[in-house]
Simulated assay, not measured.
Amino acid sequence: MKNHNVFIALLHYPAMAKDGKIIITSFTTMDLHDIARPARAYEINTFYIVQPVDAQRYIIQKQIDYWLSEEGRKTNPTRHEVVSMVKLLYTYDEVIEDIQKNRGTKPVVVGTDARPYPKTVSYQFLREEIEKRERDFLIVFGTGYGIPPDLMATFDYILEPIYGAGDWNHLSVRNAAAIILDRLLSRNRC
Results as ranks from 00 to 15, higher is better:
residue 164 G to N: 14
residue 109 V to Y: 02
residue 84 S to L: 04
residue 154 T to L: 06
residue 151 L to T: 01
residue 78 T to N: 14
residue 22 I to Y: 12
residue 144 G to R: 06
residue 141 F to N: 05
residue 156 D to W: 07
residue 89 L to T: 07
residue 148 P to E: 01
residue 90 Y to S: 10
residue 35 I to P: 00
residue 109 V to E: 03
residue 80 H to E: 00
residue 111 G to S: 09
residue 28 T to G: 11
residue 90 Y to D: 13
residue 108 V to Q: 00
residue 161 P to N: 11
residue 36 A to G: 05
residue 184 L to A: 04
residue 70 E to M: 13
residue 78 T to G: 07
residue 118 P to I: 05
residue 97 E to Y: 13
residue 109 V to M: 07
residue 48 Y to A: 01
residue 102 N to R: 06
residue 177 A to M: 00
residue 156 D to L: 05
residue 33 H to Y: 05
residue 126 L to C: 10
residue 84 S to D: 09
residue 131 E to A: 12
residue 4 H to Q: 15
residue 39 A to Q: 01
residue 109 V to S: 02
residue 163 Y to L: 15
residue 53 V to P: 02
residue 62 K to Y: 11
residue 90 Y to R: 08
residue 127 R to E: 12
residue 21 K to T: 04
residue 121 V to A: 05
residue 45 N to M: 11
residue 56 Q to F: 08
residue 11 L to Y: 04
residue 110 V to S: 03
residue 17 A to F: 13
residue 106 K to A: 00
residue 30 M to R: 07
residue 36 A to S: 11
residue 124 Q to I: 14
residue 24 I to Q: 12
residue 162 I to Y: 14
residue 122 S to T: 15
residue 39 A to P: 01
residue 56 Q to T: 04
residue 88 L to D: 08
residue 106 K to Q: 05
residue 189 R to W: 13
residue 173 V to D: 13
residue 25 T to Q: 02
residue 68 L to W: 00
residue 123 Y to L: 13
residue 57 R to S: 03
residue 47 F to P: 09
residue 187 R to G: 13
residue 84 S to Q: 10
residue 14 P to D: 03
residue 187 R to I: 13
residue 40 R to D: 07
residue 26 S to K: 05
residue 8 I to W: 04
residue 18 K to R: 13
residue 70 E to P: 15
residue 107 P to Y: 03
residue 178 A to N: 10
residue 135 R to L: 00
residue 86 V to Y: 01
residue 14 P to E: 02
residue 189 R to E: 08
residue 61 Q to M: 08
residue 139 I to G: 12
residue 174 R to C: 06
residue 151 L to H: 01
residue 162 I to H: 14
residue 177 A to K: 00
residue 96 I to T: 05
residue 175 N to F: 00
residue 22 I to E: 15
residue 19 D to G: 07
residue 10 L to Y: 07
residue 67 W to T: 05
residue 74 K to W: 11
residue 108 V to S: 03
residue 2 K to Q: 12
residue 97 E to G: 05
residue 63 Q to A: 14
residue 118 P to M: 08
residue 1 M to W: 00
residue 164 G to T: 08
residue 127 R to V: 06
residue 67 W to F: 14
residue 118 P to Q: 07
residue 8 I to R: 01
residue 47 F to I: 02
residue 52 P to M: 14
residue 36 A to E: 00
residue 44 I to Y: 04
residue 159 L to I: 12
residue 148 P to I: 02
residue 99 I to T: 07
residue 135 R to F: 01
residue 118 P to H: 06
residue 180 I to H: 12
residue 155 F to A: 08
residue 18 K to V: 06
residue 82 V to G: 00
residue 130 I to T: 07
residue 43 E to C: 06
residue 174 R to H: 08
residue 77 P to S: 11
residue 91 T to V: 03
residue 116 P to Q: 12
residue 108 V to H: 00
residue 181 L to I: 08
residue 121 V to H: 01
residue 61 Q to F: 03
residue 186 S to M: 09
residue 21 K to G: 02
residue 41 A to F: 11
residue 115 R to A: 15
residue 133 R to N: 13
residue 158 I to S: 11
